[in-house]
Amino acid sequence: MAERELKKKQAPAKQDEEVVEDAPQTSDKGDALKAELDDLLDEIDEVLETNAEEFVKGYVQKGGE
């Protein structure tokens, strides 16, 4: 019974309208994000730790809290 209630709440009419309005925007935003990610991946090797294996091995912390 509770699950049925939930399903109704998840799809209010307002949300449907928003989805329609937002659709083109979201895909523009998606393309922009994809282009940004490609740019980032193009330049990222310059920033990354040079010896990944050694770096990961050396990253040792004491437990805290």
């Binding site: 990961v56 040792v60 912390q61 437990g63 809290e65």
Partner: peptide, 12 residues
């Protein structure tokens, strides 16, 4: 919050 080797420290 973790060193990937089983040691964790917090953000409370």
């Amino acid at each position: 919050n973790s060193d990937g080797k089983g040691n964790s420290y917090g953000c409370h």
